[in-house]
Design a binder for these strands. Structure first.
Lengths: 203, 203
DNA sequence: TCACATTATGAATGGATATTCATATATTAG
DNA sequence: CTAATATATGAATATCCATTCATAATGTGA
C-alpha cells in the first residue's frame, strides 16, 4: 500500500483535531475544488492553526490522496456489503446500482474528489477505475459461469455498468433532469433497461 | 450566448497566432490540467510573448471557457451529422455511440477539458450535460412515438446512454482493460447489451 | 511532581504566476 | 507615402499561498 507518511494522532483531543481537518477538507474540496481551496481555508474552517495541519499531513497533496483512498475504500466496502447479501445476479446488480446511487447521494463529495484526481494525479484516477472494473468483472465472470448472464465480454460490460451507475449518480447528485428524489423509481427504470434492452423487438 | 469578450484577430498572421494559442492551450490543459498550466507555458509553446495572449483573451479563465464551448459545439455537430444519416433508431444509436468514441479517441483532450469544468465553473459542467441530455431525450421521445423504442422514461434513459458512451470512451482513451483498439468490436458488444440486455432469460 | 513527548500556534518566508504596460513593429486605408 | 490601427514584446508588478519554525501549551508515564 502506498505510504502517505500520515502521522496518526494518539491522544483523544488530537484525534478530534485530525477528524476536524478531514471534515473541513472534504467540505471545501467539494465546494471549491482542490486548487481553489487553501490550507488557511481548511484550518480556519477546522478551527486550528495552519501549522497544525502539518503535524498530521506532510502536504496538501497527501491530504487529498488520503481522502481519495478513504472514499474509494468506503464506497467499495459499502457496495460489497449490500451486494453480498443478495442471491441472484439480478438482485446483486440491482442492489449494486442502488447502493452506488445512495452512497453518492449521502456523500456528494465523492464525485468531486474522485474525478478531480484526473487533474491532480492521473495514476490515482487510472488505479481507481481499473481496480473497480476488475472487481466488477470478477463478479460478472462468475455469473456467466453460473449461467445467469449471457456469454458477453465482461471487460466491456463492466465499463458499461460503471458508466450507468456513475451517470445516474451524477443525475441524482446534481439534480439534472426529473424525479431525482425517487431513487427506487430510477433504479427500476435502469434495471428494466439492463434486463429488457432499449428496443421494442428482440432479435 | 455568453459573451466571453474574446477579440477575434483580423489579419492573416494574427489569425495564425490566435490558432497557435488555442492549439497550445488545448495541448497543455489536456496534458497538465488547467491549474498546472501557466500562461508562460502556453505562450512559450505557441512561440509568442505572454502579453500577446491578452490581445485576444481577457483572462486564462475565458480562454478555458472558449475551448470548452468549442469542444461542446464540435462534438455535438460531429455526432449529429453522423446520426442524422441513419434511418432506424437502432442504427442511430449505434452510430451515436461509435461517433462519440471515435471523437473521443481523436480528441482525447475533450475529456479533460469538459470534466475539469466541474472544478472551474460548475455551471458550465451542468449546462454541458443538461443540454446534451435534453437533445438526447428529444431523439428518444421521437423514437418512442414512432414505436421503435419501448415506453420507458427517456429522461433516465438519456443519462444511462450518456454514461455508457462516456465510460466506454474513457476505457478506450485511457486504455483501461482489453481490446481498446478494436472500436467496432467494442461497439458491437455495447449494442448487443443495449438490444438484448444483460441477463439470460427475458421476463 | 517532574521530565519527556505530543500537540498547537501563527507570523515569517520564499517561490510562483496572472496580468499590465510602456514600447516597438507590422498592416491597412486613403 | 502617411497616418491610423492592429499586432507583438517581455520585463515589472502585485498578489497569493504552501510550508516552515521558533515558541508555547498540553498530556503522559514513572
Amino acid at each position: 500500500m502506498m505510504d502517505l507518511n500520515i502521522k496518526e494522532p494518539t491522544t483523544r483531543n488530537a484525534k478530534t483535531t485530525f477528524q476536524e481537518i478531514e471534515k473541513s477538507a472534504i467540505k471545501l474540496f467539494y465546494k471549491n475544488g482542490y486548487h481553489a481551496t487553501t490550507i488557511a481555508d481548511i484550518t480556519d474552517d477546522a478551527g486550528v492553526a495552519a501549522g497544525t495541519l502539518y503535524l498530521y499531513f506532510p502536504s496538501k497533496l497527501v491530504l487529498y490522496k488520503h481522502l481519495l483512498l478513504t472514499f474509494s475504500h468506503n464506497i467499495r466496502r459499502y457496495i460489497a456489503a449490500r451486494v453480498n447479501k443478495m442471491e441472484s445476479r439480478y438482485d446483486k446488480e440491482r442492489e449494486g446500482v442502488k447502493a452506488f446511487i445512495e452512497y453518492a447521494r449521502k456523500n456528494p463529495e465523492m464525485y468531486n474528489i474522485i474525478w478531480e484526481s484526473l487533474y491532480i494525479d492521473r495514476d490515482l484516477f487510472r488505479d481507481y477505475y481499473m481496480s473497480f472494473a476488475k472487481r466488477y468483472k470478477k463478479g460478472l465472470d462468475a455469473a456467466v459461469k453460473q449461467g445467469e448472464l449471457r456469454e458477453i465480454d465482461t471487460d466491456v460490460v463492466s465499463f458499461v455498468l460503471m458508466g450507468i451507475a456513475n451517470f445516474i449518480g451524477l443525475k441524482v447528485v446534481f439534480k439534472l433532469g426529473e424525479r431525482n428524489d425517487d431513487i427506487d423509481y430510477i433504479v427500476d427504470v435502469v434495471m428494466d433497461l439492463i434486463k429488457n434492452g432499449l428496443f421494442k423487438e428482440r432479435e
